[in-house]
């Protein structure tokens, strides 16, 4: 091999090895950090694993929000109008969190079948529903249509 070709070979090898390592690390990191989405029906059926970070979404059940008077502890139920799941959370809820609003909670299931949320998300548009929640509701056949207006428009 001429020295020039040798140099090119080194360069190519360097790139291939670099890219290989990156791809490997990427896939590993990806597999460690995906959060699967479960609907209340799936959770009630026991499909959601315990102690793994998951996402769960649904509509907040009317009258289910209970706040602790002395701390930021709050518990509420979310539903896909078929099954409901209790969510517990300590912290500040987003502005658009309210009864009847579609939300997504991130956290893990504990042994009592309660979702310990570390994050509660509600989007900044009153007509907006997280797509996962919309689909879960559609699956349960319970998609509510807001009166007199197009959805998501």
């Amino acid at each position: 091999m001429t020295p020039k070709r040798k140099q090119r070979l080194f360069l190519v090898l360097f790139i291939v090895v670099g890219v290989g390592i990156s791809v490997g690390l990427t896939l590993f990191a990806l597999s460690q950090n995906i959060n699967l989405f479960y609907s209340p029906t799936q959770i009630a059926a026991g499909e959601a694993p315990q102690d793994t970070r998951i996402r769960a979404g649904g509509m907040v059940v009317e009258g289910s929000i209970k706040r602790d008077p002395d701390s930021l502890f709050v518990s509420f139920e979310i539903t896909d109008y078929d099954k409901t799941v209790t969510v517990e959370y300590v912290g500040i809820l987003p502005d658009l969190f309210r009864e009847g609003q579609g939300i997504v909670a991130q956290g893990s299931m504990n042994e009592h079948g309660v979702l310990d949320a570390v994050e509660v998300l509600a989007k900044h548009d009153e007509n907006y529903m997280p797509p996962e929640v919309a689909e879960a509701l559609a699956k349960a056949g319970k998609m509510p249509m807001p009166e007199g207006q197009e959805f998501n428009k």
Binding site: L30, N33, N35, R55, E132, E135
Partner: peptide, 12 residues
């Protein structure tokens, strides 16, 4: 349905 969390992005 799943989402990829910030730890993935930070780690890489």
């Amino acid at each position: 349905k799943l989402s990829v969390g910030p730890p993935y992005f930070n780690a890489l």
